[in-house]
Design a protein around this nucleic acid. Structure first.
Lengths: 169, 169
DNA sequence: TCAGATATCTGCATTGTTAAGATAAATGCC
DNA sequence: GGCATTTATCTTAACAATGCAGATATCTGA
C-alpha cells in the first residue's frame, strides 16, 4: 500500500470518504423518510415519533419524554399525538398514580396496514447484507452502534444547550 | 460458535440488529439534523438542499433538479431558494444560453460562519473512527456506499411512483 | 405561432412555536 | 395535619413557517 500514495494519505482518504458519506446519508435520510411517511399519509416527524414510542424505555411513554428526546416543544408533541390518535395509531392513557402524566401507547394492530410499504426496501436491504460474513456484519453492527450513541449524545447536548439559553434570554 | 445458539440463529440476530439500527439511526437523523439546522437559524430541509447543491452534478444546479432529487414540489423549492438567497447562502444565476433556466450556486464564503457548529460533532466522530484499522474502515465505507446507493434508488422509486399516480388521478 | 419545458406566484393546508392556562403533585411553613 | 406556594405535565390558542396544488409567466425550438 505504498505504490503512489503513502499509508497516511490513504488513511486520510478513507476518513474524508467516511465523513462525506455521513453527510450524504443524512441528507438522503431526511428526504427519503419524508417521502416514505407521505406515502402512508403521515409525515416524517409523526412516523419517527411512533418509532420512538415503540422502542421507548417502557411499553408506554409520556408526552414529556417524547418532547425531551425529540427536541420538539410540548405543544408540538400534543399536536403529533392528536394526529396519531385520530388515525388510531396511538392511544393516550392517563397515569392513575400521577394524573398529570399522559402515557402514550402504540396500537400495533393499527400499524400493520402500514408495514407493506416498508417491506420492499427491507428485502433489498437483506439482499445487500447477505453478501457479508458474520464477522464483517458484527464489525459493521458495532460501528453503527457507536455512531448511533454519538448521535444520541449530540442531540441531547443541543437540546440541553437550548434549554440553558432559554433561561438567560 | 455453536455453544448455545446455532450459527444460523447467530446470523439472524445480526440481521435483526442491523435492521433495527437502521430504524434507530434514521429516527435520530431526522431529529438531530432538525436540531442542528435550527441552531444556525435554518431548518433541516434548507440545510440539506444546500448540501445537495454543493455535491450536485455540476457546480451549479437548477431548481427543477432540486425538486427532482428531493421529491419536493417546485413551489417548495422556490420558497427554499428564497429563504437561502435572503440569507445570502445561495445565489440564482440565469443561464445565458438557455434563458429558461435558473442556476443556483452556493456562496461558500457565506457558509463558513456556520461551520463551527459542525466541527464539534466532527471531532467526536474522528475520535471514534480512529480506533479502526484501514482495512476495517474500507469495509465500512463500502458497506455505507451500498446502503447509500440503495436509499437513493428507493427515493427515486417513490418519487417516480408518485408522479405516475398523479397522471391517473 | 404553438407545443413543451421550466420557473415562479398565489392561495391554502399542514406543521411547529410561543405564550398562556389548566390541572395535578410536591414542597414548605405554620 | 392543613393551606399556600412552587413545580411538573399537558393542552389550548394565536401566530409563523413550511410545503402543496394549481395557475401563470417565460423561454426554446419546431
Amino acid at each position: 500500500m505504498s505504490t503512489r500514495k503513502g499509508r497516511k494519505a490513504h488513511r486520510q482518504d478513507l476518513l474524508t470518504r467516511l465523513w462525506d458519506l455521513g453527510r450524504i446519508m443524512s441528507t438522503q435520510t431526511v428526504f427519503l423518510h419524508q417521502a416514505i411517511a407521505q406515502s402512508v399519509g403521515l409525515n416524517a416527524t409523526d412516523t419517527k415519533c411512533v418509532d420512538l414510542i415503540l422502542r421507548g424505555p417502557h411499553e408506554a411513554v409520556t408526552a414529556g419524554w417524547l418532547s425531551n428526546v425529540t427536541g420538539l416543544t410540548t405543544g408540538a408533541v400534543t399536536h403529533i399525538l392528536d394526529r396519531l390518535e385520530k388515525r388510531g395509531i396511538v392511544e393516550r392513557v392517563r397515569d392513575t398514580s400521577d394524573r398529570r402524566k399522559v402515557f402514550v401507547r402504540v396500537r400495533q394492530d393499527r400499524l400493520e396496514p402500514l408495514i407493506p410499504q416498508y417491506e420492499a426496501i427491507g428485502k433489498a436491504y437483506l439482499r445487500l447484507v447477505e453478501e457479508y460474513s458474520d464477522k464483517e456484519l458484527k464489525l459493521i453492527c458495532e460501528y453503527l452502534e457507536r455512531v448511533s450513541a454519538l448521535s444520541e449524545s449530540e442531540l441531547a447536548k443541543i437540546i440541553s444547550a437550548r434549554r440553558s439559553r432559554e433561561y438567560k434570554g
